[in-house]
């Protein structure tokens, strides 16, 4: 594996700018994209909202950027969206690579939300995780069981013959598995929920 430069750890969104290099003649490092007559697709930046977040457009409209959920989170998992993120800037997001949602039983973030864009009337589902087999150590003949051990949701990660798989029905996308994955390149792919329900009737 290639290590990130010290000033760049933990891995940031931008790929490290490095010199071209090779292993045994096989080039493994990035070079500027070759112009092949087509534009390459720029990766979308997935945004993870705290648990109980309502439909994204209503969320953006309703969130006052007060920061109460950020203060309420006992694990510092909720942060202000970066200024670079356009209209997401200042709104609460979770970046599992920095700190994952621990799925508190009482969801203090939801309880703290005055404007009601985090609600307990919808399931606390932020997205879903997927194990990328070619990156997962357990799929490469070596023991590793961290993701299933640390997953805070019962039954979301099951292990067969030592290899983990995510049950997408149960997974809440909290990102703990991604946070703890010790593989040289993180073997957990997290995807945010695309369509979230509106606030619904509050109980």
């Amino acid at each position: 594996m290639r290590y990130p430069k010290p000033e760049e750890e933990p891995p940031s969104e931008a790929p490290p700018k490095t010199q071209p290099r090779s292993i045994g003649g096989i080039n493994i490092a990035p070079v500027p994209p070759t112009d092949l007559g087509r534009k390459s697709v720029s990766p979308a930046i997935p945004v993870f909202r705290p648990p109980g977040a309502i439909d994204e457009s209503q969320f953006l409209a309703g969130c006052t950027r007060c920061g109460d959920c950020i203060t309420a989170c006992p694990y510092d998992a909720i942060r202000k969206g970066s200024d670079r993120l356009g209209n997401v800037a200042g709104t609460p997001v979770i970046e599992a690579d920095t700190s994952a949602c621990m799925m508190c039983e009482d969801f203090p973030c939801i309880a703290s939300c005055e404007p009601g864009v985090l609600v307990d009337s919808i399931p606390p589902i932020m997205g879903t995780a997927k194990v990328t087999p070619h990156l997962c150590l357990a799929h490469h003949h070596t023991t590793c069981t961290v993701c299933s051990e640390r997953c805070p949701v019962d039954g979301a990660i099951t292990v067969t013959d030592g290899k983990p798989t995510v049950d997408e029905d149960t997974c809440t996308g909290c990102g703990v598995c991604r946070y703890v994955c010790p593989a040289p390149e993180n073997a957990i792919l997290l995807m945010p929920t695309f369509i979230r329900p509106g606030p619904g009737r509050r109980s």
């Binding site: 594996m1 290639r2 790929p15 493994i28 490092a29 990035p30 990328t132 070619h134 040289p184």
Partner: peptide, 17 residues
């Protein structure tokens, strides 16, 4: 694309490196 790109660029996957 990100997954494939990551295998092409620097952060190499296990079977490749």
């Amino acid at each position: 694309m990100a997954a494939a790109g990551s295998m092409v660029a620097g952060n190499t996957g296990l079977p490749v490196v």
